[in-house]
Design a protein around this nucleic acid. Structure first.
Lengths: 333, 333
DNA sequence: CGGAGAATTGTTAGCGTTCACAGTTGGGTG
DNA sequence: CACCCAACTGTGAACGCTAACAATTCTCCG
């Protein structure tokens, strides 16, 4: 049978409350009592029951992190950093995957309201504006990434500016026919729209005519889909001077296709990505990309979350994370 | 203020217990009462308090998954699958990272004992035998991978046989000087030892003399460390006929180094990995590897865990997951 | 139409913790 | 030496839920 505060109290010859005081440390406890209690805890191998504590306190010490798909390197790196930072601050992290299924969002919200999590960090993909109805009964929510949501706090990178800068960087190496991979037709993700916008802004600045045949659609941002999209594109189009992929994952799929076709990177076509996932460094050739500090994203998200826990009032808080273009072999002349 | 069972009960004109019965569905409730209760729940926007339920039931519906480093593709894929399978079975997953820090293991165990998680799936790396002291006061534990632990249940892939088969497969393409990347000196991980053993078994079968200069040590199994290890190796050794990397991550680092040095894969050297991570398919060239069903690992782990929850008694249960060699371009002649 | 038995619902209590408040001790003062 | 103020410790209740048991209602048959 597991020891409880009561057992510890009895053994230490004090009241349960004193044991609680020793643990929580807000009310002062005399040195000798503290010592006896601590010893009793060790002897009985006492571990507090977090369910009970959670019930009593109304807080669980757990936050939820919801990502589209943990298996993608980008999500995995975000998850890694969130878990790390959270751990440092004493939080546990519950992970949920939303897939592309809005249904999951609802379940998630309901779970979030079940008092098992004190806050929620959500990286939406499909439902840019839908499911996240930040009501009073919801725990604090922080959104990650390109989201049109205006209600919840969020952490983001300026995709428009980054895509613009990357396009300019590609142009600076003399590339003119710059294609982008990852645009979407119909209802597309906010990120796709913003990155396309930045790309086009750069073209306009450069005085290069927009050419819609250089927009390669790819709804899902995975190596598989990117490879498929690029393959069919190359079947009916000439090789562009440069290929700006909206994620590194897609770029890796693209590199694979180009290699198989004997198209040399960067000699025939420059390739760039977005996200700076770890594998980009070891891609063949190593991948030029838009890099940003994922640890910073994690810590900003946690900061916003804890701030919001302390103060539920106030308008939307936003944290912007800087980015920079990292040039590697895939665009180097 | 959040609605409670009491509020729902009052509104529906029944007792709290009836509300509970409606939710849990074990005790029969008449259709009309059920309807009234359900309507009251909707009207009051009732969400059960899982902390309270957890306290009362002694179970939380949460399992913990502990991995060395979420950012590595292998861990990420495992995590993805565990979360998926767990979700299907109604579990939530709390993720912990152990790094290579035994200290984390302890914290983890203690957390696991705090009644916030009902079970623990642990992928150890350093502490093959140490910290995991499966005592009576611990929740059920399932270990993942190559572990010498004899006390806890586990799910594993036969590394020795897989490494042997891979080595034989490489030899079948005429390679004789087969190097392995990822051996470790001193206190090494069980996986390193087992895979080395399988490799050597194959050599013995083939009548190829063991050559220690073909063992390329690499303590940490990341692309970075693998690239570094291989680079310094190539500085002082001739290029082998084949390079069997103990993980795909290392293989990807190795491919990058080989490419930079102008060593052609597979013409000059065949490269193989282990784990079949998604990126291996899109490596340049695509990576031959030892593949196994990660979803199966996840579901077996969950099965063992739930079985153990139902029956704490009984000896160690073990689930073996099949593997197969997947040949791709990196070894194809 | 009475009553046994099944079906459904209500009552009580407690899971382990901590909060509000009450009680106790100690040491310093006048 | 009585008294008072801190500083510390104890008491009781409650967080929201559900298990065990008790009580009630309904159904059906003799």
């Amino acid at each position: 049978m597991r020891a409880t505060v009561k057992d510890v109290a009895r053994r230490a010859g004090v009241s349960p409350k004193t044991v609680s005081n020793v643990m929580n440390g807000v009310v002062p406890v005399s040195g000798s009592t503290r010592l006896r209690v601590e010893q009793a805890m060790v002897e009985l191998d006492y571990v507090p029951n977090l369910s009970a504590r959670g019930l009593r306190n109304g807080r669980s010490g757990v936050i939820a992190l919801a990502l589209p798909d943990l298996a993608t390197p980008y999500s995995a790196e975000i998850a890694h950093n969130v878990v790390e930072v959270a751990h440092e601050q004493g939080w546990s992290v519950q992970i949920e995957e939303t897939g592309s299924d809005p249904q999951r969002e609802y379940e998630l919200m309901s779970r979030a309201r079940s008092n098992l999590v004190d806050g929620l960090i959500l990286n939406p993909v499909v439902l840019d504006e839908s499911a996240v109805k930040v009501g009073v009964s919801l725990p604090p929510v922080v959104l990650l990434g390109e989201v049109s949501q205006k209600l919840a706090d969020r952490v983001w990178v300026d995709s428009v500016a980054a895509a613009r800068d990357m396009t300019l960087a590609l142009a600076r190496t003399g590339r003119r026919r710059i294609a982008v991979l990852g645009t979407a037709e119909g209802r597309s993700s906010a990120a796709a729209i913003l990155r396309t916008r930045g790309y086009q802004a750069a073209l306009d600045e450069l005085g290069i005519d927009r050419d819609d045949s250089l927009l390669i659609p790819c709804e899902k941002w995975t190596p598989q889909t990117a490879a498929a999209a690029l393959t069919s594109y190359l079947d009916s189009h000439p090789v562009p001077d440069a290929l700006f992929c909206f994620t590194d994952s897609m770029a890796i799929g693209a590199l694979s296709v180009l290699w198989k076709r004997g198209i040399s990177v960067p000699a025939d076509v420059a390739v760039a990505g977005f996200d700076d996932i770890a594998d980009g460094q070891y891609a063949v050739p190593s991948l030029t990309t838009v890099s940003f500090d994922k640890r910073q994203i994690a810590s900003e998200a946690l900061r916003l979350l804890t701030e919001r826990m302390a103060d539920r009032a106030g308008g939307q808080r936003v944290a912007t994370v800087d980015y920079r273009i990292v040039e590697r072999d895939s665009t180097r002349l």
